[in-house]
Design a protein around this nucleic acid. Sequence first.
DNA 1: ATTTTTGCAAACCTTTTGCATGGAA
DNA 2: TTCCATGCAAAAGGTTTGCAAAAAT
Lengths: 144, 144
Amino acid sequence: MATADTILQAFDNAGYRLTEPRRVVASLIGQQAGHFTADELLASSRRGRAQVGRATVFRSLDILAELGYVERLDLPSGDHAFVACEPAHHHHIVCSQCGRSTDMPDSGLASALRDLEARSGYRIESHRLEVFGVCPACQAASTR
Amino acid sequence: MATADTILQAFDNAGYRLTEPRRVVASLIGQQAGHFTADELLASSRRGRAQVGRATVFRSLDILAELGYVERLDLPSGDHAFVACEPAHHHHIVCSQCGRSTDMPDSGLASALRDLEARSGYRIESHRLEVFGVCPACQAASTR
DNA sequence: ATTTTTGCAAACCTTTTGCATGGAA
DNA sequence: TTCCATGCAAAAGGTTTGCAAAAAT
């Protein structure tokens, strides 16, 4: 998962200026345990001393999503959320209890898609897989 | 894909009353070639003689999504759309040109997920796969 | 008769935008 | 100094809700 530092660097490398609000956003994202909404990020900035405007939060998340350090997630509830992640194609498995997400190994999905491509006749351009479940830690917690 | 009749029956079987607006919505959905938004459905009702209120369109789509005759789709553009479908677990492959969607065979996804479950330690509860590409017909059309 | 459903309009929420000010390079 | 970024507040979508009237059972 991308850390605050990694995210800051990402802004820099992509030619964006390193501003105070962006430092704050980077740090806030680094602190999120699981997925978070734009509003939650905004709220947590308001809880601290370093405040950031609503528009800036959205603008920053936009950029980071573009750069791949954050990914948009559509939760089963219909809410839109984000998770911090590495900028490479991958999928997430999201814990439905704690919201934490793990990058998942491809586990045969790629070959399944090639198979599908051949069978369906579609030329596949992109895909999106979201898996929801209960993570090991939450399973352990509920057994206890 | 669910037809207008199938959808009407679905309302009935689930204990909802068969009203004129619901008939109209069912028929409009039956006419959609590919995916459609709530607003598009509303607009197409306005084009015809049979009008339906905005709220009713949303309420009907809610019910049908619940019953599984329609599925919510998150397009790569970020828009929310729906597609008519059969009420069984399945995935869609959506044409990025014409918007039509086909139910796709499972093609190894299930086993890939079992593998993932074993490897990640998560207890998988649900998943969501959306595949986007160009359908055979649109490929042919662009070659021509 | 009773209960559900509708339609309208207002309320809501989330996200975007215009624009003048402030800050980074 | 120049250009980018911020923050505000307003606008814009899209979706939901309260409520009285209308329709289905």
